[in-house]
């Protein structure tokens, strides 16, 4: 029966169970409410049907009853809110140890890149049981990456990064959909996510790998090619700030604001360098808008992220929040 009338998608991620739990709870609440309203209205319509000589009993209302049926639903609503918020909090908070993969969406294709440099189109291979974080952006319109079997979805926007994460719990192939309408071939912007045993995944990663550069390596190469390294020196103060160790920290800006150095900030600093000038530097960096593709940006971001601080020069230390105030 269920084969022909499926009610449930596969449960293949850490979120599937909790989302389905809330769903079942809500289905039960809904059935209870619907039966209550339905039974009451049908019963009243039958029992109190109009009869010759029987008048309706005038009733003004009842404050107590009204309070009861405002307060009880409200309490139930708050339970649902809390439950839903807890799951959402989880969904929006990727663990620190997550493997970071990148996705670039365009009309009408998904491009994925593994940290090891493996690239895929409309298909994503992931190891089972590992936390995977996907950092995504779009080249054109808004898309949305959706894995129904994982109960997870996130819109992909042009001009910034959004992320989603999951931990696949079941080996197999599952749907990958674009869920935000994106133009003509929206319903063709689909693919599959392949969950593999970690060992098989390693094999798959190495399978086609003859001398492929890792994502960070690509970024590093680009960093040199574009001439970034002439100003952003790795150890001593250049004309631009040293980038080692800044990722994830707070940065003090020229105009006194503090920003967190995240993927979006790095991206913005490459494309629109004058938007947020680091304190103590001149706005001399040219824009790279139009010169680097979204995929190249992704590798540059990954590279900047990978730079670990060693013997930090003073300007980076100055950007530490505790020293600002």
């Amino acid at each position: 029966m269920l084969k022909y009338f499926p009610l449930w998608p596969d449960q293949a991620s850490n979120f599937a169970g909790s989302v389905d739990g809330l769903y079942i709870f809500l289905v039960l609440v809904s059935i209870a409410m619907f039966v209550l309203i339905g039974a009451a209205s049908i019963t009243f319509a039958v029992v109190y049907r109009r009869r010759e000589g029987v008048e309706a009993t005038p009733i003004e209302g009842s404050t107590i009853l009204e309070l009861i049926w405002s307060v009880i639903p409200f309490i139930v609503f708050m339970i649902i809110f809390g439950w839903g918020a807890t799951i959402y909090f989880d969904e929006r908070t990727p663990p620190r140890d997550a493997v970071e993969m990148y996705a670039v969406a365009k009309q009408w294709m998904w491009k994925f890149e593994h940290p090891e440099g493996q690239r895929e189109i409309n298909e994503l291979h992931v190891p089972m049981g590992r936390n995977i974080k996907i950092i995504m952006t779009s080249q054109d319109v808004i898309h949305s990456l959706y894995f129904p079997a994982f109960r997870i979805k996130q819109d992909v926007l042009p001009g910034r990064y959004t992320t989603l994460w999951f931990n696949a719990t079941q080996v197999g192939e599952f749907h990958l959909f674009c869920a935000e309408y994106c133009g003509t071939q929206h319903s063709n912007m689909i693919g599959k996510i392949v969950v593999m045993q970690p060992a098989e995944y390693e094999l798959w990663l190495n399978g086609g790998n003859n001398g492929r550069t890792s994502l960070v390596g690509t970024g590093q190469k680009l960093f040199t090619e574009l001439g970034c390294s002439t100003c952003h020196k790795s150890d001593v103060q250049g004309r631009g700030p040293v980038l080692a160790g800044v990722f994830g920290k707070q940065q003090l800006l020229q105009d006194g604001r503090l920003v967190k150095v995240d993927e979006d900030y790095v991206r913005e600093s490459i494309l629109n360098p004058q938007a947020k000038i680091v304190s103590g530097f001149q706005p001399i960096m040219p824009t790279f808008q139009g010169q680097v593709s979204e995929e190249q940006l992704v590798s540059l971001v990954a590279y900047v992220k990978s730079l670990k601080a060693e013997g930090q020069p003073s300007n980076v230390a100055q950007a530490q929040p505790q020293q600002v105030k």
Partner: peptide, 17 residues
């Protein structure tokens, strides 16, 4: 009632769109 499903954040992620 199904509005309650959609307002529940964690569930909305799955069923929205």
């Amino acid at each position: 009632l199904t509005g309650l499903f959609l307002a529940a954040l964690g569930l909305d992620v799955h069923v929205t769109d």
